[in-house]
Nucleic acid binder design. Sequence first.
DNA 1: TATATTGTAACTTCAATTGTTACATGATAG
DNA 2: CTATCATGTAACAATTGAAGTTACAATATA
Lengths: 146, 146
Amino acid sequence: MLHVLLHMARHDQPFTSEQIAKMLTTNPVVVRRTMVGLREAGYVKSERGRGGGWILACDLAEITLLDIRRAVGGWQMFATEDGESPPSCAVERVVNAALDDTLRQAEALLVEKLAAVTLADLLADFDAYCRAEGWGIDGPKTEQAT
Amino acid sequence: MLHVLLHMARHDQPFTSEQIAKMLTTNPVVVRRTMVGLREAGYVKSERGRGGGWILACDLAEITLLDIRRAVGGWQMFATEDGESPPSCAVERVVNAALDDTLRQAEALLVEKLAAVTLADLLADFDAYCRAEGWGIDGPKTEQAT
DNA sequence: TATATTGTAACTTCAATTGTTACATGATAG
DNA sequence: CTATCATGTAACAATTGAAGTTACAATATA
């Protein structure tokens, strides 16, 4: 999806779900399902009918990797059995407490790192990469941008 | 499995796969499958026949949470598409590079944290917990240790 | 020899994800 | 107004990976 958003930043016409599906080698319905999260978060907009499709709805500088992860779902990295009944075994309680503590720290770091990178940063990386290689968005000559 | 190993530390007879399965509310074959990794790493030994079962094969102070994670499998926390064909799209290459970097840092921290906790530490926690509550390994009075 | 145990292969089940089909809704061109 | 192209979404099928199950061989002990 990152992939798609960056392409959208360099494309002033809407992308249809079908075009996006081709980029990701999947199918249009799956694309639409995934994009719902991004739309609800206000990162993209969709237009129906002829000439419709998906366009960016905000500045890439305002979207971080963490935002994308949350919008797309599945951002809970470690299932620490939240909401389950407290274990009756004292050993289990001790083990859970120790693991929770460790995993929370790791998750906190990851969240921090993901929140520190905006899509605008990635786009800047991409531009630098292209300049260094003398490429356009479609690659040097024969390569396909997907 | 942590659960099981700590119980084993306080139990000088072998545990059968069936007993362990009951603790974990699963079944004996699944237990054996999982224990294979621990046995290959040298943390436990198994004995066949009457009176057989599983016993610890090393000092809990020499096993870290990281070791367990590796031995039990699935310690790769983030699938960064390793070993796949390099993406032909330049956007994708840039995105992958940025993500890899971020995820590697998070993984490194997690590894460090997991490697810092030995099972002996957990057992010590458990003992402290028991002393504080006046419990034996089976809980205060009526509770079942599983 | 009978019994209790691990070792392991083969199969089934289950849940989650992904893909597919079908059709309704809406926008625009002619 | 109608044909066409797009999203929106529900319902269903296919795929996948993990977990559970069954069956039986191998081994150790009473």
